[in-house]
Design a protein around this nucleic acid. Structure first.
Lengths: 286, 286
DNA sequence: CAATCATGCTCCATCGATTGAGCAAGCTTG
DNA sequence: CAAGCTTGCTCAATCGATGGAGCATGATTG
């Protein structure tokens, strides 16, 4: 064994897994790698999986529902011991596939009903963030604009609810045309702002950093004066976005706590299909 | 077969690979997921691998040389068909392990001598970027400060060479104390700037976006006037960093072309141990 | 000293997919 | 019609690691 080790020989894992009927592989589905939130999730997941002697395999699904299912099936055929579905568009479908194969699943970031979920406290995070923006926008008692995300998406709905609550806290009401759930993509946000009926409010609640990219493109098409009057805050954190002049705050999701909780749920008996919420950390930039 | 498909059955890949002695797995080692460059590489790699019917497995090595080797061995024990080593600190050691196992390797981002390499044209990219910063800094004929990266790192050496060449192009010389190759990490860059002997030059060449995070932290500790006088440019691209007021330009590495070239080299016979350079795209922000 | 137990070793069946050998049936051709 | 060929099917060996059965040796105990 020592000589084998020295000469760089290693066990054939395929044979080992075949015989042991246990792969020690833990799979993760993730939508994208193009922002700090998912990047941090991927890194933290790998680190924690390795610390437990598991082999982490991450697959990026490009927010494509078909690819999500195909990737889940592919991971199952590698006999993964368990699977974390991050930000899945149809988490219950994935849970169903996995439970049919006797594989434990956890939903991360977006909740499902057929497996335990670990998500941010989007309501409280959004309420705090909206409140911060309301405090710091240039036209104090005007309602904000909500931009980005999908109506069908649990997180977006919760954040809209928090957004509305922050307005109600100060006796303000929000008309529904101020809620632009046009998708997360930068292009869609930019287009939605361009097409907005009437002048865009001076305070913006941006639903993700990807959406913020589109918001910034729109903002830099405005006149210097119009731009100077606008303040915004963003759900999710990015170190450079945090330095942009008109950004008043970011709601950072607590990736470490979320993954610790996810791994704890994997260890525990999968008796309850709970949905656990992790508080966000509000970074005030003013 | 149709019924099996409908019922969600799938082949046991471990058994299949064991018998076929061909895994259809393509591995990638990547240092981090915390910036757009590596994020884009990871996504593009997955997309292109899938398009070729290969199963992509990416492992994040946290810039840790030991983890790099351990991860390479682990991927080999999964019988990967080939391996792309991205930004590896010791690519030749990985190539040696792989060639002992009869597995093809490509070095991406940082070159090695025992396997074909695909890297950016760091010299030309850095020369162009340095030239742009020299054009736009507030004290025209003063030399710039180079910050970030490692002396031992090929890319850093090439970029320093380009940096010096841009100065020489206009008859300027750069003293060696203006080249702070203190590592890529944000903390190290911040500390190096804090400890800089004498006033920091008003034009900065920042070697990566991760380094830029530290530079920004340092910058925001300066007085408003000192800060307003500084201009910088950065190797690598980030959408929010590109919007920061004093940023005059970014040298964006052409990830798509790099990966296309890498996959082409994998298809080709591994006869030559060439090092192919891909031009960067300079984004001018002024 | 015999009976029991602990330890260490060898050997073989097993995991599930794959592939080629072997065979049968039907078809073509001189 | 016989010889040769194609096609489709079944069957068993194989990939390499693992773990339990079986066996031999040495130690312990009444």
């Amino acid at each position: 064994m020592r000589v084998a080790e020295e000469q760089g020989y290693s066990v054939n894992i395929q044979a080992s897994v075949l015989r042991r009927e246990k792969s020690n592989i833990i799979g993760m589905l993730i939508p994208k790698y193009d922002n700090r939130y998912f990047g941090a999730i991927a890194e933290q997941f790998e680190t924690m999986a390795r610390a437990r002697g598991l082999f982490p395999v991450i697959t990026c699904t490009q927010r494509d529902p078909d690819l999500e299912i195909a990737a889940a099936k592919e991971l199952l055929s590698y006999q993964v011991d368990c699977l974390i579905a991050t930000g899945a568009t149809d988490p219950d479908r994935i849970s169903a596939l996995c439970s049919a194969a006797g594989v434990q699943t956890i939903n991360l970031d977006l909740p499902g009903t057929k497996a335990p979920s670990v998500i941010s406290d989007n309501f409280a995070g959004a309420r705090d963030l909206a409140s911060l923006i309301l405090d710091h926008q240039r036209t104090p008692s005007a309602p904000l604009l909500f931009i980005g995300g999908r109506e069908s998406d649990h997180n977006t709905r919760e954040r809209v609810r928090g957004f509305v609550a922050a307005h109600e806290d100060r006796g303000m009401s929000v008309s529904s045309n101020l809620i632009l759930t046009c998708g997360y993509a930068a292009d869609k946000a930019e287009a939605a702002l361009m097409a907005f009926d009437g002048p865009v409010p001076r305070g913006l609640f941006v639903n993700s950093t990807i959406t913020l990219e589109g918001v910034m493109r729109w903002l830099y098409r405005q006149s210097r004066e119009a731009r100077a009057a606008i303040r915004y805050g963003c759900f999710d954190w990015d170190p450079f976005a945090a330095l942009l002049p008109a950004n008043v705050g970011m709601a950072r999701q607590d990736v470490v706590s979320m993954l610790e909780l996810a791994f704890r749920l994997l260890d525990a008996e999968p008796d309850t299909v709970s949905s656990q919420q992790v508080p966000c950390v509000l970074t005030c930039l003013v």
